[in-house]
Design a protein around this nucleic acid. Structure first.
Lengths: 337, 337
DNA sequence: ATGAAAGCGCTAACAG
DNA sequence: CTGTTAGCGCTTTCAT
């Protein structure tokens, strides 16, 4: 917190002030082996007095930046908050920091730009990028992917149990007596069959459950579309059908909120059930009161960051973590009328 | 998008492949003056073929990282989304990118760590840091501060018109007939009188309006407290009073949501009005339907980023932007019973 | 218009 | 235990 003017103080300044070599200062700031207590003390004093802060750029060029990058698609933003929280928690007490790189468009470019030497490791939610491409990326910098149901060798993964979570939702709705259940989800690329994205799996499980219950003919999948059809409109269209669904299974809570919006706007508040996914903070709000699947976002974020730290410490075998899910039943899942 | 193995390709590799000097490659990638079309073409081809990406660390060490840092306190997260969006929009088409640095605890350290050579400029929301300290920081790297009503020379500011916004809220409530109006806001440090933070100003204006209306004796300020008293509880206490307020003016929308939570839980849904601030996306949701002050968060973010870009291009005189406010009246501001 | 060369601030061998 | 040295990949004078 010392205040200094002008060009910033470098490791040489500290070395000079403490009467030691730059290497010695470097060792001190990295807690490296081989520094006498006396020297350490003098160096630390000098650092303090000069208000020295190591240049991230220089460190990164030579070794580590001590930054972990979290790529966050703005989609599903509320869930990302949980991830973020967990990740920060996990790096607490380490020299590492988490920075966020918001991905607007193509995820490739955001990931590349993170890998361009800015960070020592990457946590990302990029369901659509190619596995081979990711393996390659992971060869240059440690990578943990969130929400990928693939089984890669080069990077770690953290996923929720989308099968169990979705089955719990369907069972719950069936038990309530619902038969005409629709699924409202993300645009096709993210839900393409076999793509292995969480949303693709939720969709598959939805279909499977409907079929198993002998309700295959009532299967109905609606999607929002980027920049053209917001989820609210997709939901409204669902509700305007001659025989509207009695329950809507939303791909995640943000979509569920939009579904609720459409339902309320259509004056069908107590005729259509809604279930979300992620159990974001809003779900518990009494005005929303949304039944939702909790997949431990905070824990997922923490695991992801921890895995990255392990990689940074030398682990090379891949690890894959699966978070358990819990259905939180709230007021939005009413029985059919 | 080319895929390569092993150690990443450097500027030397490109230079060699194109049969030119490294300096030439550097000029090409920076669009600098003094490259023949022929050379440019060959270099670009080589870059493409090799999948070359400049190292951010190396560039930063020597000049710019082409990264703009946005420090975001997790408080008031929904508003930050607007800022973020605007900032990204503003850097679109420039070589710059926005990265986020979430500030958990002391803002000083997050700011420092951004300034440690990671970014070329900083946008921050740090109401509590010392002006002199900030001026110093701004001497090392361009800084734009959001929500600071001070008049600094070294950095730029972007603020909303908190006076006008809050006056609009109070006028609206008075016109509805409210007299017993409470204010629910952030913990004291951020609302300390004279601190010049947006929340301090909103509080002052609230007090002033109450006094001007001859209602000084009904002034009632409640606060949430970090980690001890959530806003929901502070609101609940307000409602439990013998003569509860008929309207609650919340410091921002997230607090307003908590107030609504408490009100609904207390079964006082149609007896207490609530007004928020920031007009976040949720305010318009029919289940929330929150009257709120719009202070153009997206525009604020865009302005902030633009100002940073201007600084990076050489501007040195400070600029200060004030966003206008608009009150969006919705269902949450009911008249007193 | 092009290239050679000198660093930016730091870390990692390697000597002493 | 401590210091010397050689770069990391890039930008930037300054010659040519």
């Amino acid at each position: 917190m010392s205040i200094r003017k002008g060009r910033s103080v470098t490791i040489s300044d500290v070395a000079e002030a403490a009467g030691v070599s730059r290497a010695a200062v470097s060792k001190v700031i990295r807690n490296a082996y081989g520094v006498s207590p006396g020297m350490r003390a003098r160096v630390e004093t000098a650092i303090e007095e000069l208000g020295y802060r190591p240049s991230v750029a220089a460190r990164a060029l030579r070794g580590s930046s001590y930054r972990l990058g979290l790529e966050t698609p703005h989609i599903n933003a509320r869930f990302m908050g949980q991830i973020m929280h967990g990740a920060k928690q996990a790096v607490d007490g380490t020299p590492y920091q988490v920075i966020l790189a918001p991905a607007d468009g193509p995820e490739y470019s955001t990931l590349e730009s993170l890998a361009d030497g800015l960070v020592d490791g990457i946590i990302a939610v990029s369901p659509l990028v190619d596995t081979a491409w990711l393996e390659n990326l992971a060869g240059r910098v440690p990578v943990v992917m969130l929400g990928r149901h693939d089984d890669p060798r080069g990077y770690d993964t953290v996923i929720g149990d989308d099968h169990a979570g979705t089955r719990a939702v369907m069972r719950h709705l069936f038990e309530l007596g619902h038969r005409r259940i629709a699924h409202l989800t993300e645009p096709s690329p993210v839900t393409a069959p076999g793509s292995g994205t969480p949303h693709a799996i939720r969709l598959e499980v939805y279909r499977a459950c409907m079929a198993e219950a002998g309700l295959g003919h009532l299967t109905h999948v609606a999607r929002r579309h980027d920049n053209t059809v917001p989820a609210t409109r997709a939901a409204a269209e669902l509700l305007a059908a001659p025989e509207p669904p009695t329950a809507i299974v939303a791909g995640h809570d943000d979509i569920a909120l939009d579904a609720l919006d459409a339902i309320v706007s259509a004056g069908m508040r107590d005729r259509v059930a809604v279930v979300g996914y992620d159990n974001t903070d809003l779900a518990a709000h009494p005005l929303i009161d949304l039944t939702s699947v909790d997949q431990q976002g905070v824990e997922m974020g923490a695991q992801a960051a921890t895995m990255l730290l392990e990689r940074l410490q030398g682990r090379t075998e891949p690890r894959h973590y699966i978070a358990t899910t819990t259905l939180h039943v709230r007021g939005s899942s009413i029985p059919p009328v």
